[in-house]
């Protein structure tokens, strides 16, 4: 019978807390940058110019169709060979997490905007609004409501994806767990605790997404 010993692991709880904090910073940072990247790519996809649409589309497919872990390793180990300057693991990690999530956000934003009826834009134009005014006052407020559940779900995935930063030695929660494991030789307790901590962070978020989804279905 296995002798559980959480006490040893919990003595290093400060390491877990540091890991959670780092995970939090990378999540928030990459979501913020990802939203900007995603909005840019979304409007580029909706552009009148074929070449702009093509560039945005290529970016999206490149990042959606390759594994994030490969992207992170490539940015950290391979890209510097091309550029001739090395990137810090912080830069490489944040950049790839942001570009990765941005490619998914772009699709979520675009779907939300396209889900707003065509008549809404026409009605906005009919009272003399410019395209930008129609977008900011009429289309986006409706689109945001429609895209919110998918946006939250993607952001939940983003929290989990920060664990891949482990591969380039960024001290987020998974990395810190491995540190605790190597100090205590208690992998079962360490990784179980890490799983519980992720769950506790993410479960409320999925509930929020469900809440918005239910609310949206009621109002339709």
């Amino acid at each position: 019978m296995y002798q559980w010993d959480f006490y040893t692991v919990l003595q290093s709880f400060d390491l877990f807390l540091m890991g959670i904090w780092t995970t939090f910073l990378y999540t928030v940072g990459s979501i913020l940058v990802g939203v900007i990247v995603g909005l840019t790519a979304c409007f580029a996809r909706l552009s009148r110019h074929g070449i702009i649409r093509l560039i945005a589309r290529s970016y999206q497919e490149l990042f959606r169709c390759t594994p994030l872990l490969v992207q992170i390793l490539w940015a950290y180990y391979a890209l510097p060979m091309l550029l001739g300057v090395s990137l810090s693991n912080t830069t490489a990690g944040l950049m790839m997490l942001s570009l990765y999530v941005g490619s998914f956000y772009a699709e979520i934003f675009r779907g939300g905007i396209l889900a707003v009826e065509k008549g809404q834009r026409e009605a906005a134009n009919a009272v003399g609004m410019t395209g930008v005014q129609a977008m900011t006052h009429i289309i986006l407020p409706q689109a945001i409501k429609k895209m919110l559940p998918a946006f939250i779900n993607q952001s939940v995935v983003q929290v989990k994806n920060t664990s891949l930063l482990y591969a380039i030695s960024i001290a987020e929660l998974t990395y810190m767990t491995s540190v605790v494991n190597s100090e205590t030789y208690r992998p079962l307790e360490a990784y179980s605790l890490a799983a519980v901590l992720y769950f506790v962070m993410l479960f409320p978020l999925t509930q929020v997404a469900d809440h918005f989804e239910r609310k949206m279905r009621r109002s339709d």
Binding site: G119, E122, G128, Q133, H137, I138, Q142
Partner: peptide
């Protein structure tokens, strides 16, 4: 378009705005 008003078959009211805001949005912004 400011000088030629249009009414659509399917109304196209702005669902996220109250009746009052539906009417004031254009004059306020435009």
């Amino acid at each position: 378009r400011r000088r030629v008003g249009m009414v659509f078959q399917h109304f196209n009211l702005f669902p996220h705005l109250s009746v009052l805001e539906n009417i004031t949005k254009g004059p306020r912004i435009v």
